[in-house]
Amino acid sequence: MSVPRPRSRTYSLLALTGAALLLPGGTALAAQAGPTTVEPAGAAFSASLSGSATFTAGSVVITCDVSATDPGGGNNLVPAAPGNHNPDGAVSGPINAPTFEDCSTNVLFVDATVTVADPVWEMSMQNGSPSVGTMTVPAGGIVVTTSGLASCTATVSPDAPVGVSGTWTNGSPASTLAFDTSAPVVVEGGFGCPVEATESGFTATYLVTNADDPSSPITVTG
């Protein structure tokens, strides 16, 4: 299997979970047609993990306690008006791929490295019941390599872009985006590698705040 040539960062260690958050995309909540407005228009936003993120592939479980995406490079911005309103569907824009730190695995003496093939993802917000936030992961968007007792390579969304969807809940000062989903995965390797796995499960909840004015929350309405 050919692995996409990495174009940006390589995160160290236990980033297998990183694979998750940047990438899970199977159990996507259905996007709902209808108008969407994201406010405040033009605001920069950050998202940080609340609790921990868990990624599973077969019997392998990896947990990360720190994950975040912050504005920069023109990304993580609510579109300026009138682009922050779509009368016919979702409001979208580019975001910086999350980083993952303070991670651990349930396999003794196994470390992991994750390579992100593209540091920029697409984020779309759709108002509804519930409202839905979807990140699009490019094909081969995350490659996880483990070392130690188990030498494995896991490629998330190996063949095509995948939408990773979670439930959005408005709040103040932070709104939440909760993922409980899965994404296609291909695992290669020898002893201890979950080569039978075809999907990776992912659960995580992010707190989304206005990086320009924390007192003015990021909200999704009709």
Rank of each mutant, 00 (worst) to 15 (best):
L49G: 01
L49D: 03
S50M: 10
G51Y: 03
S52F: 04
A53R: 01
T54K: 08
F55P: 00
T56E: 10
A57Q: 10
G58P: 02
G58R: 02
S59W: 10
S59G: 13
V60T: 12
V61E: 10
I62A: 06
T63V: 15
T63A: 09
T63Y: 08
D65E: 14
D65P: 02
V66I: 05
V66P: 00
V66A: 00
S67C: 07
A68I: 00
D70I: 09
G72S: 07
G73H: 08
G73E: 07
G73D: 04
G74A: 12
G74W: 09
N75D: 11
N75G: 01
N76T: 04
L77F: 07
V78S: 00
V78H: 02
P79S: 03
A80G: 09
A81E: 14
A81Q: 01
G83F: 14
H85W: 08
N86Q: 10
N86T: 05
P87L: 06
A90F: 12
A90K: 08
A90M: 06
S92T: 12
S92N: 12
P94R: 06
P94N: 02
I95R: 00
I95N: 03
N96P: 00
N96E: 02
A97T: 05
P98H: 00
T99M: 04
T99D: 05
E101V: 03
C103L: 06
C103G: 09
S104L: 07
N106Q: 04
N106D: 13
N106A: 09
V107P: 00
L108E: 13
F109Q: 10
F109L: 15
F109H: 07
F109P: 01
D111S: 13
A112L: 08
A112R: 00
A112E: 10
T115A: 15
V116H: 03
A117W: 04
D118R: 04
P119S: 14
P119Y: 05
P119F: 03
W121E: 14
W121R: 15
W121Q: 15
W121N: 12
M123E: 11
S124E: 14
Q126D: 15
G128S: 11
G128I: 00
S129E: 14
S129V: 06
S129W: 09
P130Y: 03
P130L: 11
S131N: 06
S131Q: 09
V132R: 03
G133F: 08
G133H: 04
M135F: 14
G141A: 03
G141M: 00
V144F: 01
V144I: 12
T145V: 14
T146I: 07
G148N: 06
A150P: 02
T153M: 13
T153R: 11
T153K: 01
A154K: 05
A154F: 10
T155D: 06
S157M: 09
P158I: 04
A160V: 13
P161A: 14
V162L: 05
V162A: 12
V164Q: 13
S165T: 13
G166R: 00
T169F: 09
N170M: 10
N170D: 12
N170H: 11
G171H: 07
P173H: 03
A174E: 10
S175A: 14
S175C: 01
T176H: 05
L177P: 01
F179D: 04
